[in-house]
Design a protein around this nucleic acid. Structure first.
Length: 414
RNA sequence: GCCGGGGUGGGGUAGUUGGUUAUCCUAGGGGAUUGUGGUUCCCCCGACCCGGGUUCGAAUCUCGGCCCCGGCCCCA
């Protein structure tokens, strides 16, 4: 019999109600936090023309996407991320909006990768994009929104804030491919690998400055290392805002953030309990809109790895709404439906017994699934009352439906 | 794509020098109890990931595949 049972696709998960309650609760606080900063939620298609994703990242990523041809011969892909879609949407229908535009999203993404801890083939991202503001205040706001949302979710995290200008300066003049390799070593803090690579690339003279970069904590130290770069005043301005607001973070100018479209400020957040995939948030300032046919609008945003946040939070026994189970004898069925309806109208959870069985068996079931039982039989029907039983204490009384509703409400949540 | 560890009822497990009816707990269903549960007792349900090979005989040995866990690569 098990032979024919279908399995879920690799890297996907099923969520039972208890886990969904937790996921929805975290999701709700993230949305509410973003909303308080003025970010309105948007929704984009689950699949897009494949070009949207290859334009910025190259053809190479096709093998890591769920790409397919539809019946009209269009090359499409399930979205591997949301930022590209949001910027496409901005170019399509957001350009006439007053700037800056503040948008957020929560949606699932799909990547054909090898699953491991905190990495799935279907995973959820919560993200924010601030479009049309290229200022220190904009950089600082996005960082603070990320920090606010993460803190609100309850996760413990380290926030690293950096800027690409110092690193780019130290690598300037080198061939593009060599720069990328060096950035990768630096981003991974593989100093030994970087040293060897610098020597073989004939750039051993740059090693000392490069390894000093991740240690820089102040703009003064950056100035000593890189000279008086024009971007330093912007960095100074951003950290000034963050410090004045009392944000907890670590300045980190060793962040490389993978791809080229990041233009300035970059930041990342890391959490515990997550093994190799411990980054729960990444973002920065970028320019993408021009790729999709829009003007070259400056943007800034981040994405949170929602599933990783939940892995890091672990299993939390959140409070659960009180459940009332409605039990009845056959003759009282209609009355039971009516009582259950009144409970629901009062915003309480009521579950009807649906199986033909005696009160004893119904009570046995209710004891496992509910906090209160309503019993309806001949007596209650004749007097127009219900019997309300507290399944935790065993206390029981016969009263009106309104009294029963008031009694359950007074109990609070579990 | 690569490396390592795994896969026994729904969940958790015992069992592998190859041997008869695969162990225990739990969950689920029913009963003792036809208007009062959680305890107890009894009963039922239900598994060796899939396929090939070796063998008289495979959960056990072997090969391949699938899936899970962790790591590498990658990480938009």
């Amino acid at each position: 019999m098990e032979n024919c049972m279908l399995q879920k696709p690799r890297g996907t998960r099923d969520f039972l109600p208890a886990e969904m309650e937790q996921r929805r609760a975290v999701e709700r606080t993230m949305r509410e936090t973003a909303a308080r900063w003025g970010y309105g939620e948007v929704c984009t298609p689950t699949f897009e023309e494949i070009e949207l994703f290859t334009l910025r990242s190259g053809e190479g990523i096709i093998q890591e996407m769920y790409a397919f041809e539809d019946k009209g011969g269009r090359m499409l892909s399930l979205r591997p991320e949301i930022t590209a879609s949001v910027l496409r949407m901005y170019v399509n229908e957001g350009r006439m909006l007053p700037k800056p535009v503040r948008w957020c999203y929560y949606a699932d993404c799909f990547r054909y990768e090898r699953p491991q801890k905190g990495r799935y083939r279907q995973f959820w991202q919560f993200g924010v994009e601030l479009i049309g503001a290229d200022t220190a205040a904009a950089d600082a706001e996005v960082i603070m929104v990320a920090s606010d949302i993460l803190a609100g979710s309850g996760v413990t995290f380290d926030l690293h804030v950096g800027h690409l200008a110092p690193m780019k300066h130290l690598l300037s003049g080198l061939e593009n491919g060599i720069q990328r390799r060096m950035m990768a070593y630096l981003d991974k803090r593989d100093f030994e690998g970087l040293r060897v690579f610098c020597e073989t690339a004939g750039a051993a003279g740059r090693y000392d400055a490069l390894v000093a970069l991740p240690e820089c904590r102040t703009v003064e130290e950056l100035r000593d290392l890189c000279g008086n770069l024009p971007e330093l005043s912007r960095i100074e301005d951003v950290v000034g805002i963050l410090d004045a607001e009392g944000l907890t973070y670590t300045p980190d100018f060793g962040i490389a953030r993978g791809l080229d479209y990041y233009t300035g400020m970059v930041f990342e957040a890391f959490a515990e309990n997550l093994g190799a995939e411990n980054q729960i948030c990444g973002g920065g300032a970028y320019r993408l809109a021009y790729l999709f046919g829009g003007e070259d609008v400056p943007s800034c945003g981040f994405a949170i790895g929602f599933d990783r946040v939940l892995v890091s939070l672990g299993e939390v026994a959140g409070s659960r709404p009180v459940v009332t189970s409605v039990l009845y004898t056959p003759a009282a069925r209609q009355q039971a439906f009516a009582v259950a309806r009144q409970f629901r109208a009062a915003d309480l959870r009521a579950e009807m017994n649906l199986i033909d069985r005696g009160i004893g068996a119904q009570m046995k079931h209710a004891a496992k699934t509910a906090d209160f039982a309503i019993v309806l039989g001949e007596r209650e029907c004749q007097t127009g009352t219900v019997t309300l039983r507290n399944l935790h204490s065993g206390e029981q009384r016969e009263c009106t439906v309104d009294d029963a509703i008031a009694g359950v409400k007074a109990f609070g949540s579990c």
